[in-house]
Design a protein around this nucleic acid. Structure first.
Length: 303
DNA sequence: CCGACGTCCTGCTAGC
DNA sequence: TGCTAGCAGGACGTCG
């Protein structure tokens, strides 16, 4: 399941083999993707040349010479690869772009079809599209803004982390891992976190994401990079998918619960529901609470 | 406005 | 052995 690190890996893999290539033919399968392919896109794309490829949150942006942008989301099981045209086309391959020069194709494959491939008119339209869907990147979270998003919310902190407006690109795996390293239980309500915990969480998110990128992301089932390679970060999970296995720090068995409809993995000892000194949670106006949260102290994460 | 929950989709697996 | 129910979850719509 591609989250930010996996998408970043795909983009890095594709950059050397996709930039400067021209689209010379397109074929689209009959099955509908989340955002259905519009027939008029084909004529617009033919002959266009890729000038750059980049990432924003979990979205892949392919910049074209025409100023149009090809926008790709991998959903759960999406794969975007540059493949030799001679390679057999695997089942669930929905879009194939023939590239000029060497006989290669950019292929979009997605078993569960939660992903999408679409054409956006220009950079302005792209930015408008993204602005209403994603907030700041995890590596550049503003401490104040992040603290406010957490401390003003009544939701479980795990659900807040999955909100793309709060920390764009974080998904179920890295939310669980970050909460573990910050020592925060996934079911804690946002407004019950101390300023120190919020800051630990912010740092943990950035660190987990960075380490996952360094390891080419995590391959659980379907994920592969742009060159077909698997990720390696799954070997370094502390909690995700480790239910009943021993916590790497304290040895107690990892638990799992459902939070906001998603499986959440945590260590009951390292991430207590009620942290050591269970401080009184008085109902206070949100502005006052926000002031408390903005009083941040530097906390250490557990790496 | 906010939060909770249902929906989409397919393949794999646990359990009877 | 064969069948089925349940699970995986990112984004988005709907409902209270």
């Amino acid at each position: 399941m591609p989250e930010l690190p996996e998408v970043e890996t795909v983009v890095r893999d594709l950059r050397p083999v996709l930039v400067n290539r021209r689209i010379v033919a397109i074929s689209v399968g009959p099955q509908l993707l989340r955002r259905p392919w519009q027939p008029e896109w084909e004529a617009k794309l033919l002959g266009d040349r890729v000038t750059a490829i980049r990432r924003r949150a979990k979205w892949i942006i392919v910049d074209l010479e025409s100023a149009r942008r090809l926008l790709v989301h991998l959903g759960m099981t999406g794969q975007l690869t540059v493949t030799s045209a001679g390679c057999p086309v695997l089942a669930h391959t929905h879009v194939i772009f023939d590239l000029d020069g060497r006989a290669e194709q950019l292929r979009f494959r997605d078993v569960r079809r939660f992903g999408s491939v679409e054409l956006i008119g220009d950079e302005t339209a792209l930015q408008a599209f993204l602005a209403e869907r994603v907030g700041p990147e995890p590596e550049s979270l503003d401490p104040q803004g992040f603290a406010l998003a957490i401390c003003r919310s009544e939701r479980p902190v795990k659900a807040i982390l999955l909100d793309q407006h709060v920390a764009a690109g974080v998904g179920n795996i890295y939310a669980d891992e970050a909460l573990y390293h910050a020592g925060v239980h996934p079911q804690r309500r946002g407004r019950t976190l101390t300023g120190e915990e919020v800051e630990r969480l912010r740092l943990a998110i950035a660190t987990v994401i960075r380490q996952a990128i360094d390891n080419r992301g995590s391959t659980i089932r379907d994920y592969i990079g742009g060159s077909g390679l698997r990720g390696q970060f799954q070997n370094q999970f502390y909690v995700y998918g480790r239910t009943d296995q021993a916590c790497r720090r304290c040895g107690s068995p990892i638990s799992s619960v459902r939070v906001g409809g998603r499986a959440s993995h945590f260590c009951p000892l390292c991430q207590p529901v009620h942290p050591r000194r269970k401080q009184r949670q008085r109902k206070v106006p949100s502005t006052t609470r926000a002031d408390l949260c903005s009083d941040l102290s530097q906390g250490s994460t557990r790496f």
